[in-house]
């Protein structure tokens, strides 16, 4: 459990960090950005990752904090999970983020692990990427060439692979406020309290005046190499009036959510094989939608 040797760099500013990253990558070195270290350090200690250097962003205060910016909440990349879940702004305006963050690992991890670090790690078993996808968050990144924005739908490229280019650092995430009328829920299924999600379902749902669902957004955790939107179920839920099962025994909510696994390619691991994950996605989506509807 001892990492292979690596260099350690602690830049004094974001500009510095971008320059260090760009130089290293130009030289062909594999460098890794260190945020809270709660995912990266175990990889190093198990010698599953061999970066030549770590670039520690931990002392850059400008990357830390939550701000209410009118139509969205901005969460700095280095904001810890604990800070996120306790933030009044987050809880009031983007409660789904708070709900999901509260399920991440355990208190010790939440005090060190960071919001941006979880996103940039792009682990489909992480709880937050699915939330970002469901909420159509926008990722603000920077390199020596300047800033750019990446929509959540384009950010998670592949397993542990975010859409960060050479020399790019994630500055923060814009989480859109959805306004009134929305309900939220994050349904996490895991074997022990500290375990990763076997499957997780992030739901935002809005009813129209008549009570029928007008819009549903569903992000799935650990149902493929990246977090995925359950687009088929989202479409099927539109117009569904959630009510007790019909007199003919039909349950349109259940039927719509039975398509939650459409288009996914869930992994097989010690905790679940793909068919079980698909089943869980269907059951949990119905529960999450039900809970979000209140």
């Amino acid at each position: 459990m001892i990492p292979a040797p690596f260099d350690y760099v602690r830049p004094a500013s974001v500009e510095d960090a971008c320059r260090v990253l760009a130089d290293a990558e130009a030289a062909g070195d594999e460098v890794k950005v260190l945020a809270g270290g709660q995912s990266l350090l175990p990889l190093l200690r198990l010698r599953l990752a061999y970066p030549s250097a770590l670039v520690d962003l931990g002392r850059l205060p400008e990357l830390r904090g939550v701000a209410d910016r009118g139509d969205h909440v901005y969460i700095g990349a280095l904001t810890t999970h604990d800070e996120v879940m306790r933030s009044g702004v987050v809880r009031e305006h983007v409660p789904l983020v708070a709900l999901a963050t509260a399920t991440v690992a355990d208190p010790a991890v939440r005090h060190r692990g960071t919001f941006g670090g979880s996103m940039a790690h792009a682990d489909p078993a992480g709880d937050l990427p699915a939330v970002a996808l469901a909420l159509d968050c926008v990722f603000v990144v920077r390199s020596s060439d300047g800033e750019r924005e990446i929509p959540a739908a384009e950010f998670f490229v592949d397993y542990l692979e975010p859409a960060l280019g050479p020399g790019e650092v994630l500055l923060g995430v814009r989480v859109p406020k959805l306004g009134s009328g929305w309900g939220f829920h994050y349904e996490k299924f895991h074997r022990t309290a500290q375990a990763w999600a076997t499957v997780g379902v992030a739901v935002a749902v809005r009813r129209g005046d008549g009570g029928a669902i007008e819009e549903a957004r569903i992000g799935l955790t650990n149902m493929g190499p990246t977090p995925v939107r359950a687009r088929v179920a989202e479409a099927a839920l539109r117009g569904v009036a959630p009510s007790p099962a019909g007199s003919n025994g039909s349950d349109p909510l259940r039927e719509a959510c039975a398509q939650a696994d459409a288009g996914t390619s869930p992994p097989a691991d010690l905790h679940a094989r793909p068919d079980y994950r698909r089943h869980l996605a269907r059951v949990l989506t119905r529960r999450a939608v039900g809970a979000a509807l209140g």
Binding site: L46, T192, A193, A195, L270
Partner: peptide
């Protein structure tokens, strides 16, 4: 396969 505590699950007080 169960070489880490992420794979070999033991219950904590929370479980």
């Amino acid at each position: 396969v169960t070489t880490t505590m992420a794979d070999y699950l033991i219950p904590s007080a929370a479980d």
